[in-house]
Design a protein around this nucleic acid. Structure first.
Lengths: 196, 196
DNA sequence: ATTGAAAGAATATATAT
DNA sequence: ATATATATTCTTTCAAT
C-alpha cells in the first residue's frame, strides 16, 4: 500500500489551487524535476485520489435564478431513482443522497421556483415532502490539511493501513484491509460479472 | 453585454470533463484554431464564468471515516461565523449557508463522529441543534445543458439581458441590468471604500 | 479568427542514486 | 524503487494578416 508523502500533499494542494499550473512550476516549488511531478501526478490519478481535472464554473451566472438547497424526503426505496433523475437537470449542480431516503440538491432555480424543477424531473408520487432554502453563501475547501491517505476496505469497510492490499478491476482501483478481503471481493466481483 | 455562443458552451463542457485537455484538442473538436480557444478561455475567465481550474480530489480516500451531511441550526446571527470557522476543518469539503440561519456541511468524519468535528471548530453555544446523515452517494453535474449566460444585477437582483452593463471593480467583474444600477452600485462601492 | 514561427512544457528513454 | 538528464514531441503564445 503506497502512502502519501509530504511532496504528494504539496502537489495536490498546488493542483487544487490551479490545475493548469505547469509541472515545471510545481517541480520548482517542491524541489523536484518536472518528470518526477508527472510521475507522481500519474500515481495520484491511479490511486483514485485525483478523480479528474476540472473547471470551477460559476453556475449562478449561467442559470437565471437564485441558488437553493432542496431537501427531498423520498418514499421508501425511491431515493436512488430521484437522485439519478434529478441530476440530469441543467440547473442542478450537486446531488447528495443520504441514508434515510433523503436527497439533497444544490441548484439554481428561477425566482425560487423549486417545485417546477422537481415536477419536471422526478415523479412527485415518490416524494413525501420537500424543503427549499435559499443559499446565502457557499464555498468549497481548497485546503487539504495534513490528511492521510486512508481508504476504507472495499469489502469490509474497515480502514486500510500499511499492510493493506489493492486490486485493479476493470480499470477501477480498490483497496482492502487484508488479503482475504481482497480475495473475497474479487471472487464476488468475478462471479457477478460471469452472471451477466 | 457579451453573451455565450454555442462554441463557448462546448469549450466549457470540454473543460468540465477534463481541464488539462490541450487547447489544440479543443480547437479540433470545435473547429477553431488553438489561439482562438486560448482567447475564448481568457474571456470566460474574465467574465467570471470560469472561476478557476482545479482538481477533483476524492476526499473520502484521504480522511478515514464516512462521508456525512451535517445540518447545523445556528442561533440568530451566528450562521456566518459558524460557516466560516467550520470551513477551516480539514475534513470539511463543502459548506452551504442558507437563509434561516442554517449551515449545511459535506464532510468526512471518523466513525460517524460529527460532534467532535463541530466541537473542535464551532462554539456549541451558537448552535441550537444539528443533524448528521450519512451520504450514500453524491455526484456533481458535469453537464451544462443549454444554459444561457444570465447573471443577476449586482445592484437590484433582476436578471441582466443584452442591454445590461458591466463594471470591473478591484479586479472583480460585476453585471448590471441598466446604467443607473451600475452607477448606484459604483457610487456606493466607492464611498464604502473611501470610508476605510 | 487564422497562419506560421518561436518559446515553452510534457513525456519517454536511458541512466544514476 | 525513485529521481534525473536529455531528447523528442506536443502545446501555447506572439506577431502579422
Amino acid at each position: 500500500m503506497p502512502g502519501l508523502d509530504d511532496t504528494d500533499h504539496e502537489i495536490l494542494q498546488l493542483l487544487l489551487e490551479d490545475a493548469r499550473r505547469p509541472y515545471s512550476d510545481i517541480a520548482e516549488r517542491v524541489d523536484l524535476s518536472a518528470p518526477a511531478i508527472s510521475d507522481r501526478v500519474d500515481r495520484l490519478v491511479e490511486m483514485g485520489l485525483i478523480q479528474g481535472f476540472t473547471v470551477d464554473v460559476d453556475r449562478s451566472l449561467l442559470q437565471a435564478g437564485v441558488p437553493v438547497l432542496i431537501e427531498v424526503d423520498a418514499k421508501p426505496g425511491r431515493a436512488a431513482d430521484i437522485a439519478a433523475s434529478v441530476s440530469d437537470a441543467d440547473s442542478v449542480e450537486r446531488v447528495y443522497r443520504t441514508a434515510g431516503g433523503r436527497v439533497m440538491l444544490a441548484a439554481t432555480v428561477p425566482q425560487s421556483d423549486a417545485s417546477e424543477l422537481l415536477a419536471e424531473h422526478v415523479d412527485l408520487g415518490d416524494v413525501n415532502r420537500y424543503e427549499v432554502r435559499m443559499i446565502a453563501d457557499s464555498e468549497w475547501a481548497v485546503g487539504l490539511g495534513g490528511a492521510e491517505f486512508a481508504p476504507d476496505c472495499a469489502e469490509c469497510g474497515n480502514s486500510v493501513d500499511e499492510e493493506g492490499e489493492q486490486r485493479t478491476l476493470d480499470g477501477e482501483r480498490y483497496y482492502f484491509c487484508c488479503g482475504s478481503c481482497a480475495e473475497r471481493f474479487v471472487d464476488q466481483y468475478e462471479s457477478l460479472k460471469d452472471g451477466v
